[in-house]
Amino acid sequence: MPIPRARRLTLAATAAALAFTLSGCSADADPTSSPRPTASDDAAPIFASDEEAISAFQASYGEFLEASVDVTNGGGADVDGLSEVASGQALLDEQQAAEELTAEGLRTKGSASFSIHSVQEVDATADSISITAYVCDDIHALDLIDDSGTSVVADDRVSDVPYTVVVAGAHPAELKVNEKVLWERENFCLA
């Protein structure tokens, strides 16, 4: 079933302006799987525990979501801060979605929050870190409005939106969202 344009824009806004050209999800992925550390047993661990890795992910993604909502609350006009919290495809998607919001004369009003459904993978080596998790964006408190201030959100919109998110960087304090892909199978956020 196609996603209506207003609903796509709402999803874009909450996901730090999710781009409308989404890449596919792996059919083999299972949102209930546990983290699979892949760092060498000989190397000193980057994270002392799974909780430390999850905490680093939460901090990175939380900053990303906040910056994304700031951009969309401003109508997509100022995207400068996104490069501090996003890189790669996620940054490109955010910039594209912000451009589309501006072109459509739309902006968001409110806030979004998130929860981590589960961590799929932690890949930490001496020179790079990548953490992949299944995330639920909660957009109940985020409205999409037009130039006149009228809400354009569909009454039946999904407000708990599932994503696969990858944060990456060279050091735990330097993690940025590198990829954010809408989960198009069963919504694990509603389970």
Rank of each mutant, 00 (worst) to 15 (best):
P2C: 15
P4F: 08
R5M: 13
A6H: 11
R7E: 14
L9D: 11
A12W: 07
T14L: 13
A15P: 05
A16V: 00
A16D: 08
L22F: 12
S23C: 05
C25S: 14
D30I: 06
P31A: 04
T32M: 14
T32I: 13
T32A: 11
S34E: 13
R36D: 09
R36Y: 08
T38P: 10
D42W: 06
I46Q: 10
I46N: 08
F47D: 02
F47R: 03
A48H: 07
S49C: 10
E52P: 11
A53K: 03
A53T: 03
I54P: 07
I54R: 14
Q58Y: 01
Q58C: 14
A59N: 10
A59K: 14
A59D: 09
Y61D: 02
G62L: 06
E63S: 13
E63V: 02
E63F: 02
F64I: 07
A67W: 00
S68F: 09
V69M: 04
V71Q: 05
N73G: 02
G74E: 01
G74M: 00
G76H: 01
G76N: 05
L82V: 02
A86E: 01
G88W: 03
L91D: 00
D93H: 01
D93R: 05
Q95V: 11
A97D: 06
A98R: 03
A98C: 09
E100W: 10
E100S: 12
E104P: 08
G105L: 00
T108W: 01
K109F: 12
K109H: 11
K109I: 12
G110N: 00
G110D: 01
S111I: 03
S111D: 10
S113D: 04
S115P: 04
V119I: 11
V119W: 08
Q120G: 12
V122Q: 00
D123H: 11
A124Q: 04
I129G: 03
I129T: 00
S130W: 06
V135H: 01
C136Q: 11
D137Q: 13
D137A: 15
D138A: 08
H140G: 06
D147H: 09
S148V: 13
T150S: 15
S151T: 02
V152N: 06
V152S: 07
V153W: 05
A154K: 11
D156Q: 12
D160L: 15
T164R: 15
T164C: 14
V165S: 05
V165T: 07
V165R: 00
A168Q: 09
A168G: 09
A170E: 08
H171R: 09
V177I: 06
V177E: 03
N178K: 15
E179S: 13
E179C: 03
E184H: 14
E184M: 09
E186N: 14
E186M: 10
F188R: 11
A191G: 14
